[in-house]
Amino acid sequence: MNESEIIKQIKSGNEKAFDELFNSYKNIALRTAYLITGNLCTAEDAVQETFIQCYFNINSLKNSQSFKPWFYKILTRTSWSCAKKDKKVTPVENIYERFDAQSIDKSIKDYLKNEEYEIIYSEIEKLDIKLKTTVILFYFNDLSIKEISKTLGCIEGTVKSRLHRARAILKESLINFYDIGGGSKNETIRI
């Protein structure tokens, strides 16, 4: 069954179709909520609440093909709400501790690459929640500018502007990272 067919089946009360929808979205939804909230327990609560809202409100979705932005709209709002309630928007892991523990068997190249990713992630974590969510939806969920604008309820220009700002901030942090000796001269040029 394709997604539109699954949605139609759920609307007609087919429980197996709901299971199928859940299985299609469960991991991506949890990962998205985790990136937004920074806490796995909070993310699990947000995902559960999102699927429950989907179940009860699916009939309000007029166009089955618009499911993806509709779903992410509920997920992002629920994640924001849960994060605000729990006040746990800080990352759950100490990135350097995790890095030390995992790096023993890695080559220097992998080590630096991972460190670079952690630097980028920690900078994403510092972004304002709407800017951060825009980045996550674009880079992690592969939503188009148009889909993000529908999801977040803003115009496409705002999405583009947020992405531009985010790129600039992240570029700056990477330049600083290499300036303080985190990578080779060659890497600096390649940014």
């Binding site: 469960k26 991991n27 939804a29 949890l30 990962r31 985790y34 990136l35 796995l40 993310a43 699990e44 995902v47 991972n114 670079e116 990713y117 952690e118 980028i120 992630y121 994403i124 980045v135 996550i136 880079y139 992690f140 985010a166 790129r167 992240l170 990477l174």
Partner: peptide
């Protein structure tokens, strides 16, 4: 790099 950073952060996150 942003894409990889986000994916590497969640590679081990799975719904129970």
């Amino acid at each position: 790099k942003i894409k990889k950073a986000l994916h590497s952060k969640t590679d081990n996150v799975f719904a129970s």
